[in-house]
Structures are given as structure tokens and as C-alpha cells.
Simulated scan of single mutants.
Amino acid sequence: MPKINFKTSGKVAEFAEGDEVNVLRTSIRAECGVPWRCASGNCGTDRILIEEGAEHLSPPRRRERERLGELMDQGVRLACQTYASGDITISWDPEQKGLDEDSELGKRLKKRWLGVMEDS
């Protein structure tokens, strides 16, 4: 089974062979700790560094390219805009602060975003 190694939190999430999974959604479901706020590519809070497995990632989307600019040349991606189809290792700045997922806003956004993603 392919896996995402969330190096900063020390967690690993596996997914079914042949699947393509959203990196942020996987992090939220498996409680792997990637910080996030909007989950739609607007805020840039969920910046991750691709350490291994870039060849197993979806091509960058326009919103991601616009938000990150030259950082993409350094291997930075947005977890909410990135899909993995094989083994990858990612890390992020542990000082990055995301939305408090236990706040009312956090719960609403998480439920809405995960629900929308399930239909995709």
C-alpha cells in the first residue's frame, strides 16, 4: 500500500493501491497535523515541502502556482491542492499555525470541506 510520510508529525497514512488521495484531506482524517485554514488554496497556510516522491503527485493547479510562485521551484506545494498516487514524504514548518479545528468555525469548515471532497 502506498503511504504518505508526514515527517514533521512523525505519522504515516496508508491508502489503497491505485487511489489518488488529497494530501490535506488525508492529513485531517488520519490526524497527521498539516496546518490549514481554508482548505481551498486561498490562504497558503497548508504549505508543505515535498522531500521524496514528487513524481507521485498531481501537477500543480493554477491557484497553487499563483499562491506559491517561486516557492514551487524549491519543492513547496499546498496540501489542499495536491493529490498523491504513490509514496511521498512531506514536511512543514512546525511554527506554521492553522485553524483551531476544535473551534466552531474549524468544525464547520472541516465538515463542509471533507463532505465536498467525498463527492469529488
Rank of each mutant, 00 (worst) to 15 (best):
residue 44 G to K: 12
residue 93 D to Y: 14
residue 64 E to Q: 15
residue 115 G to S: 05
residue 52 E to C: 01
residue 87 D to Y: 04
residue 85 S to V: 08
residue 16 A to G: 13
residue 56 H to N: 09
residue 48 I to H: 06
residue 109 L to V: 00
residue 36 W to P: 11
residue 79 A to T: 10
residue 48 I to V: 10
residue 39 A to T: 03
residue 39 A to C: 04
residue 46 D to I: 08
residue 26 T to W: 04
residue 44 G to L: 04
residue 64 E to R: 14
residue 84 A to G: 02
residue 14 E to K: 13
residue 45 T to E: 00
residue 46 D to G: 07
residue 26 T to M: 05
residue 95 E to S: 08
residue 103 S to K: 15
residue 99 L to R: 12
residue 87 D to T: 09
residue 66 E to V: 14
residue 40 S to K: 00
residue 104 E to L: 10
residue 95 E to Y: 09
residue 53 G to C: 08
residue 110 K to S: 04
residue 89 T to C: 09
residue 79 A to I: 08
residue 104 E to I: 12
residue 102 D to I: 05
residue 73 D to T: 13
residue 86 G to Q: 13
residue 69 G to A: 01
residue 13 A to I: 10
residue 116 V to Q: 03
residue 24 L to A: 11
residue 33 G to E: 00
residue 64 E to P: 11
residue 47 R to V: 08
residue 69 G to P: 00
residue 44 G to W: 03
residue 66 E to R: 15
residue 26 T to K: 06
residue 89 T to D: 05
residue 120 S to I: 07
residue 31 E to A: 11
residue 48 I to M: 05
residue 83 Y to A: 03
residue 15 F to Q: 02
residue 19 D to R: 10
residue 22 N to G: 06
residue 14 E to Y: 13
residue 108 R to C: 14
residue 63 R to C: 01
residue 75 G to R: 13
residue 31 E to F: 08
residue 45 T to S: 01
residue 109 L to C: 00
residue 41 G to H: 11
residue 105 L to E: 09
residue 103 S to W: 14
residue 19 D to S: 09
residue 97 K to A: 07
residue 106 G to F: 06
residue 27 S to A: 14
residue 5 N to T: 03
residue 5 N to A: 03
residue 77 R to M: 06
residue 42 N to T: 14
residue 65 R to I: 10
residue 7 K to C: 02
residue 103 S to P: 15
residue 72 M to R: 06
residue 39 A to N: 02
residue 102 D to C: 05
residue 28 I to A: 01
residue 32 C to R: 05
residue 85 S to A: 11
residue 19 D to T: 13
residue 37 R to V: 03
residue 3 K to E: 01
residue 15 F to A: 06
residue 102 D to W: 07
residue 16 A to K: 15
residue 61 R to K: 12
residue 111 K to P: 07
residue 82 T to P: 13
residue 29 R to L: 10
residue 18 G to Y: 01
residue 74 Q to W: 00
residue 56 H to L: 08
residue 11 K to E: 02
residue 89 T to K: 14
residue 120 S to K: 08
residue 113 W to F: 06
residue 81 Q to I: 14
residue 23 V to W: 07
residue 45 T to F: 00
residue 110 K to A: 05
residue 93 D to F: 11
residue 77 R to C: 04
residue 15 F to C: 05
residue 40 S to P: 00
residue 109 L to I: 01
residue 95 E to T: 12
residue 119 D to M: 07
residue 63 R to F: 01
residue 80 C to L: 13
residue 97 K to Y: 03
residue 116 V to I: 06
residue 90 I to W: 07
residue 84 A to R: 04
residue 38 C to W: 00
residue 73 D to L: 12
residue 70 E to T: 09
residue 65 R to V: 07
residue 85 S to H: 11
residue 43 C to L: 02
residue 111 K to S: 10
residue 86 G to C: 13
residue 84 A to Y: 01
residue 43 C to F: 02
residue 82 T to Y: 12
residue 48 I to Y: 04
residue 45 T to C: 00
residue 120 S to T: 06
